[in-house]
């Protein structure tokens, strides 16, 4: 028996999302009177792997295979399923990000496990196994029951805290059984931005809507994001107009985010956008229209033009940071 967590790495390093996942696995394992095991694929230095122990992993299974470059779904699935079998995992947990969404359903089929995706808390109960997740893109919460013996979960980023737990993690190396058929896809090129805050991982998100008035008017927003260590997001019209890249679109058909603080500039708050941000802990909005729906979702609001408010806000933040 065990809870197995798959932790993705970024050029050999873990991010907050990885520690949250390990902490979740550790707390779930404690409820189930078992241990949390982590599987890590690719080259990660030993000292980095050891960090996972500080969040409750009791064992880390390291898999290195020189054929692996980038995410190859079939190969990663086979590796995780083999480790799950070896460790007798009852529950396998992934982050609910691009990589987790790619792998978790495949692993679920392999293990004949029922899957709950985007869960945002520890289970309501273990028998029956019931867990909460957002449904209808943030407009409601569903309690999903998993009936199968084995279970696969994906954990929504920023929904649980990474709690430190002093486990002395054992690191072992595992050699998976892989054939060429597992490598039917090939990553030809990777364009990774490693110095930027990931939108789904960010504590603070600074976001702009149509009220930003054009593609060339984002410098102040970028400046504020820099000052706050925030990720940048935008609304659908903004990405559709090509003012900002699609990867920054937050809302129904874009990303769903759950930061601690979401700052909305020039966003009126269409229902599709609100769905994508409703899990944010604090929403702050600046908009010219005092009746804009964004103010119904916001905790603090300023009625004003972003072109005038932003420079003042940047100045005030800069001053405050000096103190």
């Amino acid at each position: 028996m065990s809870v197995l967590a798959f932790t993705e790495n970024w050029d050999g390093k873990f991010k907050k999302i990885s520690f949250e996942l390990v902490s979740y696995a550790h707390q779930l394992a404690a409820q189930m009177n078992t241990n949390a095991v982590v599987v890590s694929i690719g080259n990660v230095p030993e000292e980095e792997l050891k960090k996972l122990g500080h969040y409750g992993a009791s064992k880390i299974v390291r898999v290195e295979d020189n054929r692996i470059s980038g995410l190859i779904n079939k190969a990663f699935t086979a590796i995780i399923a083999q480790v799950a079998e070896k460790e007798g995992a009852d529950v396998v947990v992934f982050s609910h990000n691009f990589t987790g969404k790619a792998l978790a359903p495949r692993v679920a089929v392999r293990l004949r496990a029922g899957m709950a995706s985007g869960v945002n808390a520890l289970p309501d109960s273990l028998d029956p196994f019931v867990v909460k997740k957002g449904v209808f893109t943030g407009k409601a919460i569903g309690h999903i029951t998993i009936k199968s013996a084995k279970k696969v979960l994906t954990l929504f980023p920023n929904s649980v805290e990474a709690i430190e737990a002093d486990e002395n993690a054992v690191i072992e190396t595992f050699t998976p059984q892989l054939s060429d058929a597992h490598f039917a896809t090939k990553v030809l090129e990777v364009k990774k931005v490693t110095d930027k805050v990931l939108l789904t991982d960010a504590e603070v998100v600074v976001s702009g809507g149509r009220g930003m008035k054009g593609a060339d008017k984002w410098a102040p927003l970028e400046e504020l994001a820099g000052l706050l260590g925030a990720a940048i997001a935008c609304t659908r019209p903004v990405s559709d107009e090509g003012w900002r890249p699609h990867g920054e679109h937050v809302g129904q058909t874009g990303k769903i985010v759950a930061p601690n603080v979401y700052l909305a500039f020039g966003i009126s708050g269409a229902i599709q956008h609100l769905g994508g941000i409703s899990a944010s802990k604090h929403i702050i909005a600046v908009n010219t229209d005092k009746d804009a729906p964004i103010f119904e979702a916001a905790e603090y609001g300023i009625v004003g033009d972003v072109q005038q408010v932003l420079p003042k806000l940047i100045e005030a933040v800069r001053e405050a940071k000096k103190q």
């Binding site: 496990a113 029922g114 029951t145 199968s148 119904e296 905790e299 603090y300 609001g301 300023i302 009625v303």
Partner: peptide, 19 residues
């Protein structure tokens, strides 16, 4: 292998504080 057993709507928001 799974099924939804219950749903809930998010709690209503407190009124926005204007600055």
């Amino acid at each position: 292998l799974t099924g939804f057993t219950a749903f809930e709507l998010p709690p209503p928001h407190a009124k926005c504080k204007m600055i």
